[in-house]
Every structure is written in C-alpha cells, then in structure tokens.
Design a binder for these strands. Structure first.
Lengths: 336, 336
DNA sequence: CTGTTAGCGCTTTCAT
DNA sequence: ATGAAAGCGCTAACAG
C-alpha cells in the first residue's frame, strides 16, 4: 500500500487537511506544525497522488504533444522545445507518436481528453484530422497547432513560411539554370509553382513526384522514376529532411554525383547531419522554436492573459547555401 | 462542465453503474440497454475520466520514459521503440527529458510516482542516480534500466556490449596501424584499454580526452587539444554519436581530412546521417530495439509472468566499416 | 441484468 | 491555526 496523506497525518499527529496545507505551501500553518509534518513526509517517503489532486482540481499539470513521428529530426526538436518550456512552467509532457496514422491520432486525442491534460500541442496528420480535433474543442481542452494548419480550422498556430521558403529554394535552383522537380506538400508545392511562374518557366506536372514525407524509401522510389525520365530534371527540391534522404539514395543508385550531375535543395535542416557534413542547401527551420513558442501560446491561453482571437505565429526559415545546389565555386565548396 | 458518467446515465435512463459496465465491455448488460447507453455516449460526446478510474484501480495505463536527451538520435529511437510497444499494449508514454541533470531527474522520478504511472523506463543520468531510483522501489513502481547500468544496483536492464564493441573498434584502428585516442565513458574506455593491451600497445593517458557525450562543442574542444599535441593521434575513437560530431568539426578546423589525415570510428550510428553519407565506421547499436525490449520486460513484470530475478539483456552492436576509419581501398571507398 | 453503497486520495468549504 | 464534512468521477462489492 502506498503512503497516503492520512498516513502522514497520523504520523505527525495532525489532520489530513494540515498535511495538505503544508504540501501546498499554504501560509496558514504554524512553523512548528509545518516542520513536524515535513519531517513525517520525509520519513515516510510520501509523494502526493496527482490523480486524486487532479480529479478535484480539474487539472493535471500535463500537456499532450502529438506528432507524426518523433524520430523525424524536425519533430524531435519540436518535442524538445515543448518539453523544456513546459517543464519550466511546471508542466509535464505526454508524448504521442501517431506514425502519421489518422486512427492512431484519434485514439490519442481521446486519451488526452480522458487523461484530463491541461492542453495539447499537435502537429496533425493532415486535413482529415479536423473532425477529430473537435474532441478537444468539445471538451474545452485548449490546444495549439504546430507546423501544419488545417483547412478551415481556426485555433492558435505556429508554422513556417513554406510558400516563401519553397519559392526561395526553387528560385535559387532556377537562377543556377536548373530544370527543377519537386516532391509535394501543399504549401511548399505552391511556393514551387510561384517560383516557376516568377521565372517564366512553364510548369510540367511530369516533374512532380508524389512521395511520402515520412518514409525515405518512398521518396527514393519516386526520385528514381523522375531520374528515369527521357528528359530528367537537373535538380531536385525535396519537401523535407526525410524525403531528401531518399533523393540522395536514388541519386547514388543512378550513379549521379551531387551537385555535379544533380542539384539538390530541401526544407528542414538535419541537426547532426549539417554539423558533420555541411553539404545540403536548405531552408533551415527553427524547429525547437516551433515547440517553445507553441508552448508559450498554450501557457498564455491557460493563464487567461489572452483574448479569444486566434494567434498565428509564422517563423521564418534560414536559407543556407551549401554544396548540394551547386551554387558555390569549387574553391568555396572546398573550403567547407 | 465536462460530461460525466452520470450525465450519460441520466440521458439513457439507467444508473451510472450500467454505463460503467458498457464502457468496460462487461457482458452483464442487455443488448438493448447497451445500445441505448452507447447512443447517449455518442450523443453527449462522453469520454471517461481516467483520473477517476486510475484512482480507484490503482493504475493509469501510462509509463514514464526518462532519458538524458530526446534529441540524441540514439535516445530518440529508444523512445520511439518504447512508444510503439507501449501503444500496442494499450499504454501511454510520459516523456521526461532530464538534460543529463540529476536534479531534474529526481524531479521527474517523483512526478512519475505522483502520477501513479504503471512503470518506468529510464536511461539514468549516471551512478549518482542510484539514491533517487529508490523512489521507485519504495513506491513499488516497476522499472527497467536502459543503456546504462548503475553500479551496485540490481533491476532489469537492457544494454549494449560497450566493452566488446569499443574493443572491436579500437582493434580495427590498431590493425590499420593507428595510434589511437579515445573520449571517455567507463565501459567503452575499458574496451579501449583491453584492445590496447591485446595489441601490446602501451596506454598513454595523454591520448584520452575527457569530454561530454552530450554536447558536441565540448567534444570539439577536447579533440582540438589532442590534435594540438606534439605527437597527435592518427585516429580517434569517439564514444558516441554526439561526440563524433565535435571530433569531425575539430578535424575540419585543423584542416585535417578524414580518413587521410585522421582515422575516425565511433559508437552509435546516426540514422539519417548514415543513409545520406555512409561515411562513418561505427558500432551501430539497435537503438529502437533497446526501447522495445525494455518495454517488453516491463510488460512482463506487470503481467506477473516473471519471477523476482532481475533480467539483463545485452544487445550486440553491428560493426560497420565505412570510409572514416580509412580501412577501405580508394576504389571501394569510391563505390560507396 | 441492474442498482446501491462505499470509498480511491485529495482539496474545498465552512467551522471552530 | 486547525479540523470535519462533503465530494471530484469512477468502479468494487454486494444486493436484488
């Protein structure tokens, strides 16, 4: 049997209420009593039961963080950012990895309600997450969307500027004289088209490979198909740090050197990769900041210091030119 | 006000107990009543409160996972492994990132007790975690140690064979005629010494750089000092995937090419790095398996299908020779 | 098959 | 400054 507040009360010769006051640092306890109770707590190794406390107070001191894949370096950093800010504010984090699966996401959303978490931070699987997000609104669980907006949904949101970022990346390739290809993702795809338009280049649907932003192997196959075209692209714009891995593998399989035979740019840096081999030209998003800001927005909501209106934070990405796009003169490239 | 079991009961015209039975899939409810109750649940959007349920049943359906740094690719995969197995078994995961800080770890341990988690998986900060692990034993919270053993502590454990792995890596370097250096970490350090001994090479303490296995910058500085020695090492053995990043940076700063000017091997692969640039010679530990096995051990304990004795699982690492150690002939290296 | 009673461990409210 | 009573939402144990 675990030690309860009553055990401590008995031990210290006071009522449970007094122990409760000591735990909660109420000033309405005499110094002497407080000391006696604290001694008993230490002696018995008492740890208050948060379930009981949460039941009555209607708050648990925990947030749910729901992401499609913790192992994706972007989300890893998001989660870390969330965890850090949450921790400083005295909150815990329940991690939910949906594996990009809508059903799993639904299950987790229900569970977050069930656990009575005080708030949720979620990078939703996609637009089809919308109906199930109503689980949160219906149960008054405040939440913040991360990275992905949901069409027709209004709620606090922290995201990157995918359109502008993608456009910049693609413009960069076009400037270098490339004929570019892209893997999808709505906003980034739009940025791609905008860049083409701006440069007066005609859009060729054949050069767009639908792939998975979650599994490098799928991206690899898709890239392979592109490279096998009669008139293959001379450069590739990968939608994210997962897809880019598949692209590089496909290039290798086709015996293509990057950037000599194939230019490459992508969204999202990969922390350790870029430190080890500063090679990929990327739009580096401040992933951890996505997490910290989102958590901050959530904390603001909880504190009630903020109005009803939704807040949208758009975080700019850093455009980092490295070797893979072929922009650098050989000497410069060498210097890296 | 959130929807409670009583609201559903009223709506369906039954008692709370009957609703409870429906929720818990008890067969002792008539088909008709069950249907009515389910309709009410759906209508009202009722989600059972796990705090209340946990309070009475003494279990929450959640595990705590405590790691020194989620963003370390090794632990990221461990966490993912845990999350997956836990999820399949119907458990949730509360993520705790200690940042390698003992105090924070202590706080998290207390919180896990407080939250009444059903079990804990922990990669402890270090030997000094031992006293605070007693929080778990004292409160009968079953747990499994991951990756690091704690001197004088017995409990279920999943770890890699650091001694053998390190020895193999260092032997590899010695075979290639290198004069090696190492960054610390008890077991891996021992493997290093064993390899030297086996090869009849004298141990030179000057060649060992104490560094941080958590921060690449510290490893970078430490490596810099080594490379500045009058008689610098010709190869480096980095203790893990974080340290290796710093080593590579230091080499670059000193204008050294790997492997031509400096051989390099390390523990732990970095998933995306090795797919992008199969370059580092490593002992690749099955990180995700650390998580899945550990969780399995925990589930076994909970099911009581297992005796009192502690179980230790030692997972072998894969020795993967790539360019960085300089073992491959140029053509072979090229082929990669 | 369904309902009643009691109580999980804690805090709120109201006394004293 | 301290305590007694009531109850958060749910389910175990026992009726019926």
């Amino acid at each position: 049997m675990r030690v309860t507040i009553h055990d401590v009360a008995n031990h210290a010769g006071v009522s449970a209420m007094t122990v409760s006051r000591v735990i909660n640092e109420s000033p309405r306890v005499s110094v002497d009593t407080r000391r006696r109770v604290q001694a008993s707590i230490a002696k018995l190794g008492y740890v208050p039961n948060r379930l009981a406390r949460g039941l009555i107070q209607r708050k648990t001191g925990a947030f749910g963080v729901i992401v499609p894949d913790v192992a994706n370096p972007f989300f890893t950093l998001v989660v870390r950012g969330v965890e850090q800010v949450a921790w400083r504010a005295g909150y815990h984090v329940i991690l939910c990895d949906t594996q990009g699966d809508l059903e799993r996401e639904r299950g987790y959303l229900e569970d977050m309600v069930s656990f009575q978490v005080d708030g949720v931070l979620i990078a939703p699987v996609g637009d089809r997450s919308r109906p199930q997000l109503r689980l949160l609104t219906r149960n008054n669980v405040p939440f913040v969307l991360i990275d992905r907006s949901i069409a027709g949904f209004d709620g606090d949101l922290v995201q990157g500027d995918s359109v502008a970022g993608a456009r910049q990346l693609v413009e960069h390739l076009i400037e270098l004289g490339h004929r570019t290809d892209v893997s999808t993702a709505r906003d980034r795809f739009q940025g791609y088209r905008e860049a083409l338009e701006g440069a007066g280049v005609e859009f060729d649907p054949e050069l767009v490979a639908e792939s998975s932003a979650i599994d490098p192997d799928v991206a690899c196959e898709a890239t392979s198909r592109l490279l096998a075209l009669a008139d293959p692209p001379s450069a590739i714009f990968a939608v994210n740090n997962i897809a880019v891995v598949g692209v590089v593998e496909a290039a290798r399989q086709h015996g293509l050197e990057i950037p000599d035979d194939l230019g490459l740019v992508c969204f999202d840096d990969i922390e350790h990769v870029s430190r080890l081999y500063p090679f990929l030209t990327v739009m580096a998003q401040p992933a951890e900041t996505f997490g910290t800001i989102a958590t901050q927005l959530l904390l603001d909501r909880l504190s009630g210091r903020v109005g009803q209106r939704r807040r949208i934070v758009v975080l700019p990405a850093d455009f980092i030119v490295r070797k893979s796009s072929g922009a650098l003169a050989p000497e410069q490239a060498e210097a890296l």
